Amino acid sequence: MQKLTIGTRGSVLALWQANHIKNLLETQYPTLLVELKIVKTKGDKILDVPLAKIGGKGLFTKELEMLLLDGSIDLAVHSLKDVPVDFVEGLGLAAITRREDVRDSFLSFKYESLESLQRGARVGTTSLRRVMQINALREDLDCQSLRGNVQTRLQRLENGEFDAIILAQAGVNRLELKGIPYIRPLEFMIPAMGQAALGIECREDSECVEILNFLNDKNAVFETHCERAFVRALNGGCQVPIGINASYQEGSLKVRAILGLPDGSEILKESLESEVASIKDCEYIGITLAESFLKQGAKVILEKAQNWQF
């Protein structure tokens, strides 16, 4: 293979991610020509509606997947947390990269922390998962939907439309955001499945599968397979209030998970630790944890959450 075309969304963060993979490929294969093709997805076009209202499977991936299938691009670089747990036939993940910081992050120009916000302070986020966990901690805050790319969100924060916003710490780090007085990782908040990893998607019959193999990180692969198995077993998507984070180290997998209603009134939360030696072991742990949640009424809670107004 002499040339590869990477499909990517056009935001600054998406382009950083695509160029990061481009650079790694060119370093690994010096004779390989790699180019980018920018694609605007449904999630990028509809910015005046909360994600949960339009959050069907493939919100940020469908258009890229169509180009993969027709051969217009060879691979697509995604934030793994945006990738649905079920793939279009013929497509799959060829690589899952080493994770950045998995935590969510508090950003504000005026307030040092979530705890220091005044009653009724406006907190911007796209995620019902984050809203749920914020409301469980501080139900007096006003969580509001905040769409757009990172730069748009920061501008609205600086303009005073919000007292604080919540972003993924991975994006903060990758873009090396500066000029914001208060940036605080949120230790209490359980991240989304796949958060801080990049997922590289391609056709299952493509030469890219072998070419991209060097990008796989064992820890990230083990962790995210557990997380995605948990969400799949719950029949949850990217835009429902589910948090799941697995951490693999020296043969041991630690997992913590949460789901509930966005107002924090009903929440299930659990954690476990187990020895693992394979991807199947990790997926089994995710499924086992999901079954425990289902026995506690998770299905009813998630059905309520899907109809939530935000």
Rank of each mutant, 00 (worst) to 15 (best):
Q17V: 02
A18W: 01
N19I: 08
I21K: 02
L24E: 13
E26K: 13
T27R: 10
K37F: 11
T41K: 01
G43W: 03
D44T: 02
D44E: 13
I46C: 06
L47D: 04
G56P: 06
T61P: 07
E65A: 09
M66N: 12
D74A: 11
A76K: 00
S79Y: 02
V85W: 07
V85Q: 01
F87S: 04
L93G: 03
T97P: 06
E100H: 09
D104A: 13
S105V: 12
F106E: 08
S108N: 07
S108G: 06
K110D: 15
Y111H: 14
G120L: 07
G120A: 08
T126N: 14
R130T: 15
I134M: 05
L137R: 15
R138H: 14
E139T: 04
L146C: 03
L146T: 00
R147M: 15
G148M: 01
G148I: 03
Q151I: 03
T152G: 09
Q155G: 11
L157W: 02
E158C: 13
N159I: 04
G160Q: 13
D163T: 10
D163R: 08
I165F: 03
A168C: 10
Q169G: 00
N173S: 02
L177E: 01
I183T: 10
P185M: 06
L186T: 06
E187A: 13
A192V: 04
G194N: 08
A196I: 07
A196C: 07
L198K: 09
G199P: 02
I200M: 07
R203G: 00
L215S: 08
A220R: 05
E223D: 04
T224V: 01
T224L: 01
E227W: 01
A229N: 14
A233I: 05
G237T: 11
C238F: 11
G243F: 00
I244A: 11
N245R: 11
S247C: 10
L253Y: 04
D263Q: 13
K269W: 05
E270G: 12
S271C: 12
S274Y: 11
E275Y: 06
V276I: 15
S278E: 15
T288H: 05
L289M: 15
A290L: 09
A298V: 09
L302T: 00
K304M: 04
A305C: 11
A305V: 10
N307G: 14
